[in-house]
């Protein structure tokens, strides 16, 4: 039974992860982008004398790449975050905006630590251990505290996850809009990190047996370790759960954010025509129909018209047939 658990579970998880991810991305890719709708957060490229914002309002592919890298690597948009504080009652007090970098910092700390941790774990799956994995591990473990010494990212990721959970629970609005699924994501991540930390620092396991097992997993010829210990099983299971649910929960933003049309499109809507594959024809009220309807009035006002005499088309087919003319009293907009 444990053998099945240790061998079947990670493979099922990996298949769900990779397959799910591919399926999600394929679904998005298969859905067309009908319009070019970037959110412009900087000056457009227009007049020669006005400096365009090349990244915030990119008009070139390089600009878009820059914008996406800033988003993906440095969480540019989250960096803008401010708290709006117009809470004071009274007819019209001053607007107050407070710098709020904590969410950005927490998100950066969490995601980057996670990346470092993943790269560190690469050594378990590849023989010989990739240089990048040992380099990252040596930098991460630079400060020697404890035996085995603590990785900085282990501490950072725990603090960051704790903060992300704490803010959800503390802020009434955030608590209100949080779904059980949001707590699930945090819980799984905390389980992964927590079990990993326990496994390394408290209830240790035989690393050699683990690496034999993980290398076996990578080689598609796995053998379960003889006595993995509860800590390891817990870590493996939580990681498997994380991988398995990632494509089917909000965590799929990891892939989805790169496809966000408001960010990855160039702001060149008037420069280059964006083609909508399903650009459905929309019948509109043509000039001919219009002139037919208003010919007398146009003539009376002395405005030029196409046909001084007669009509363009059979009144039966005219646009005016579609319904009663709307009242000509309407809002000033």
């Amino acid at each position: 039974m444990p053998t099945v658990l240790l061998i079947a579970v990670p493979y099922v998880a990996a298949v769900l992860f990779l397959g799910g991810l591919a399926w999600r991305v394929w679904t998005w890719a298969a859905t067309p982008e009908p319009f070019r709708i970037p959110t412009t957060t900087g000056q457009q490229r227009s007049l020669a004398g006005i400096a365009p914002s090349r990244v915030e309002s990119p008009s070139t592919t390089a600009g878009v790449v820059g914008r996406m890298l800033l988003e993906g690597l440095l969480f540019r948009s989250l960096f803008r975050n401010v708290a709006s504080g117009p809470t004071a009652a009274g007819t019209c007090p001053d607007p107050v905006f407070l710098e709020r970098k904590a969410l950005w910092l927490g998100a950066m700390a969490f995601h980057w630590s996670l990346l470092v941790i993943v790269v560190r774990h690469l050594g378990l799956f590849v023989e010989p251990i990739p240089r990048v994995a040992s380099f990252v591990a040596s930098v991460d473990g630079f400060f020697q505290v404890g035996s085995p010494s603590w990785y900085a990212t282990d501490v950072i990721v725990i603090v960051a996850l704790g903060y992300l959970l704490f803010r959800r629970v503390r802020d009434p609005l955030l608590r209100y809009l949080t779904l059980p699924a949001d707590y699930l994501a945090l819980a799984v991540l905390i389980a992964v990190v927590g079990s990993g930390v326990v496994l390394r620092y408290v209830a240790r396991t035989d690393l050699i047996a683990v690496r034999q097992y993980t290398l076996g997993l990578a080689a598609l010829a796995p053998t379960a370790p003889a006595s993995p210990g509860a800590g390891f099983v817990l870590h493996l299971l939580s990681v498997s759960v994380l991988l398995a649910i990632l494509p089917f929960t909000k965590m799929v933003h990891a892939a989805g954010m790169w496809l966000s049309p408001t960010r990855n499109q160039a702001n060149d809507g008037r420069r280059r025509r964006h083609v909508n594959p399903w650009n459905a024809p929309a019948p509109f009220h043509t000039y001919e129909e219009w002139e037919d309807e208003f010919r007398e009035k146009l003539q009376a006002a002395g405005l030029p018209i196409e046909r001084e005499d007669g009509r363009f088309q059979n009144p039966q087919a005219g646009g005016g047939e579609r319904g009663a003319p709307p009242a000509a009293q309407a809002p000033l907009t």
Partner: peptide, 18 residues
């Protein structure tokens, strides 16, 4: 991305097991 994520597998299949 998929190739990168499954890199350890390709790598392991291409070389003798350690």
């Amino acid at each position: 991305c998929l190739a990168a994520l499954t890199w350890p597998v390709w790598r392991a299949l291409a070389s003798a097991p350690a």
